[in-house]
Every structure is written in structure tokens, then in C-alpha cells.
Design a protein around this nucleic acid. Structure first.
Lengths: 215, 215
DNA sequence: TCCTGATATGCAACTTGTTGCATAGGCAAG
DNA sequence: CTTGCCTATGCAACAAGTTGCATATCAGGA
């Protein structure tokens, strides 16, 4: 039960309606916690009943009214209480890893396209993160050299620093995944050295990793 | 709906009872897909009804009989069919990332212990993976230089190669997490430079990353 | 004009996943 | 000899998450 907490964090960062939250869960916070609009509306209702958040009707020109939620004092103390609890081990779901182990009982080469698709997704997300980093956190150190900003000018807004730390985690994750997927592609290619990487959508499955989006 | 498929893979790798599967989901395959014994028993029952797996009663000395399941032809074709389907985007749940963003509205330093605990967990899991790699895949190349084995002696059992690729992914993930958690600890320390890292359970939150288990 | 799409909210039904408990024999420590 | 733990399976109730659909308004294009 932690969607509540993700919503609290998001509403503390900026109040908003259920719909707006749903949008955010397709971007920013959604990169670390997923939820559909159905779930969000249902949980918002419960949170309002529990007094964690308050609603305010906002009339809009043309559009239906929206209910803008914001966090109450009770909600804030719920959140800070939660911060003190240990997080229980994340439940892992790496479907691609399961498929790779399953591929031993089918045709490994059939996974190549899928792995390439994943690689593209991770490459795009990395580019997105890096753009966000440039936009929101300036041209400082690279994500590969954590702590490089530590000796720089004092920029100690905790919210900003923490958001940057989370973003650096996302960047590190995407880089790691891209490198691993290259490794997997090389392995698949080694197992069945058919198809040469054609020019369309092609990327080297054999040689060194394709260039990342420039940091 | 993919617990079925994870079970199929596990049973193909080695037939076993529900209980044994539950144990495996605490180790090996469980590092990439979690499930409790309740879920496993329920799904096994359904899979048997669907004819994906067959059961065989195995009497045991002293212990209650166990039902040893193995994959039928129908189950195998189900699995290979699944391999061809695109994996839909994994639903992400990075609770620690949510907490970090939430910490801006509480006391960031209160998270230090939790982050350190996570780091220990990841360090231990990395050591576990590396031990498994040494045990099952010999002294070959390091995980940091994927493809190093490619030019070595031909060892092209697909199952083995794919399991190794998955394991390398686990290793890369744990290394990445450890590095990121060091980054986070440095950030937290920068935000509130209280407590010096004492000698008990201490690890440098400031200087370079603590030494990994030797690869 | 009609159709599509974005904003905005929500119900109902269904599937998954979790938690608590129950059974039942054997084995080892105290 | 009793208490707790391990093997081994399972029911029942609940919580969480997904999917399909419904409503309503307005803007812009075919």
C-alpha cells in the first residue's frame, strides 16, 4: 500500500486534480511508480475520506469543473511517518529476464527484435532524462561522476537536490540497461549468427555499444 | 499475466512440486519474478486444469507425498507462443525513489539508515551473484567486460549462455544500485552534514564507494 | 455537420496478489 | 516430552490493480 504515499508526494510538490495526477503518473513520478487514472480516483476518494487531503472545486472556462486536491496536515504527518518505516523489498518483475531463460526452450533468435525494441525504449528514455537534467539542473557534472557538484557552488535546496539524485538514479538505470541489452544482443548473435544487422533500424549488435545520446 | 510463464520456465529447467517452486521463487528465478506459495499453488492448479503441466505423485519417506509437476507439450507451445509476444512495459515500483522525493517534506537525514540498509542488501546480493557466477560459469571474463568470453573457447549451450546473460544483468543492476546509493548517501550527507559515519556498520558515505566484493 | 480528440470524472466486473489460518507428519533441541 | 521448525498443501477473505465502459463539455478539422 504505497500509491497513497506516491500521491501525497506528488500533491505536495504541486496540488492538482485526479486527471492531472494521472498525467503526472505518465511522466515524472510515473517513472518510479505507475498507476492508472482509475486507481488514482479511487484512492483519492479514500484519502479524502480519511482526511489526508482536501478538495477544492475549481470552475473552469469551457471544461468541466475539476477538484483540486491538496495535502492536509494529517496527510503530511502520515507521509513523514511513512518515511520512517523501512521499505520492504521491492517485488521484482523483469519479464525480459524470464523470457531470456525461457528462450532456451524455443528459438533464442526470435527474441532479437524484442530486445532491440527494449533497447530503443531505454535509449529514448535516457535521452529524455538527460534533457530534463540539462533543463532543470544546468550544465553541472555528468551523471557518471556523482558528487562532482558537491564542491561546486552551494545549491542546497533539499527538494531540488533530492529530485536530482532520483533523476541521476534513473539515468544510471537506463545506461545500465542499454549496456546490458547490448550484451544480450551480442549473446543472442553468438548463439545464432544469422541475420546481419541491416541498415533499417539497425544498430550494431556485435561491436561496441551504439553511442548514447550526448550527455 | 506472466506468473504462469515464469513457472513454465522453471519447470522446464527442472520439474518439481509446488513447494519446491516456492523455494526457487525465493532464489534463482525469484530474483527476476516474485511469487508466494499461495499464488503458486493456485496457478499450478489452473495450469494443470488447462493441460499445460502434468502431475505425478511422488511418495516420500517420512514426508507427505508431493506432486511433481512437469511441462506438457501444450505447455511448451504456450511458452514458445508467449516468447513471440511483445512484453508490455514493466510496471515500475521504486519505493525508495518515491521516499527520496518525499523526504524534501520531512527530514532527509532520517532516510540515511534506510539507504544504508538498502546498500547492504544490494552488496550482499551482488556477492551472491558473483559467487554463483564463479561457481557456474568459471573464471572467464568479468561482468564488466561483456563479450569477453565471445572470443574464448566455444561454449554454446544456449540455456547456459542465456542464464549467464541474465546473471550478468543482475550483476550489472546490483553494481549500478550500489553506486547510486553511494551517490544518494553523499547527497543526504551534503544536505545535513551531521553524524559522522561511525565505525559500527559504517561505510564511507562521503569518499569513494566502499569496495565491492571482489569480482 | 459530424467526427475525433482532449479534458474531467467515475462505476462495475474481473484478475492478481497478500495475509491469515489450517492441516499433518517427522525431526531435533531443550 | 514438549516446543518449535521444516516439509507439503491448501482454503478463505481481503486488498490492489486492470479493463471496459459511461458521461459531459468544448475545440478543431473533414
Amino acid at each position: 500500500m504505497a500509491l497513497e504515499h506516491a500521491i501525497l508526494v506528488s500533491l505536495l510538490e504541486k496540488p492538482g486534480s485526479g486527471y492531472e495526477l494521472a498525467r503526472r503518473f505518465e511522466r515524472s513520478i510515473g517513472y518510479f511508480w505507475t498507476a492508472t487514472h482509475q486507481q488514482i480516483y479511487r484512492v483519492l476518494k479514500r484519502m479524502e475520506a480519511d482526511g489526508w487531503i482536501g478538495a477544492r472545486d475549481v470552475p473552469q472556462r469551457g471544461r468541466p469543473d475539476k477538484k483540486e486536491y491538496s495535502v492536509s496536515a494529517a496527510g503530511l504527518s502520515t507521509l513523514t511517518g511513512w518515511l520512517g518505516e523501512p521499505v520492504q523489498p521491492e517485488s521484482v518483475r523483469h519479464e525480459l529476464a524470464v523470457k531470456l531463460r525461457g528462450a532456451a526452450f524455443g528459438d533464442p533468435a526470435a527474441l532479437t527484435g524484442e530486445v532491440e525494441r527494449h533497447r530503443r525504449m531505454h535509449r529514448d528514455r535516457l535521452a529524455h532524462y538527460l534533457a530534463g537534467q540539462r533543463r532543470d539542473f544546468g550544465g553541472g557534472g555528468t551523471a557518471e561522476d556523482p558528487g562532482a557538484e558537491a564542491s561546486g557552488p552551494e545549491d542546497l535546496d533539499p527538494g531540488r537536490e533530492l529530485q536530482h539524485a532520483v533523476l541521476r538514479g534513473g539515468i544510471a538505470y537506463e545506461r545500465m540497461m542499454i549496456a546490458w541489452l547490448d550484451d544480450v544482443l551480442a549473446t543472442l548473435h553468438r548463439l545464432s549468427p544469422r541475420r546481419d544487422p541491416g541498415p533499417s533500424g539497425g544498430r550494431p549488435a556485435q561491436a561496441g555499444p551504439a553511442p548514447d545520446p550526448a550527455p
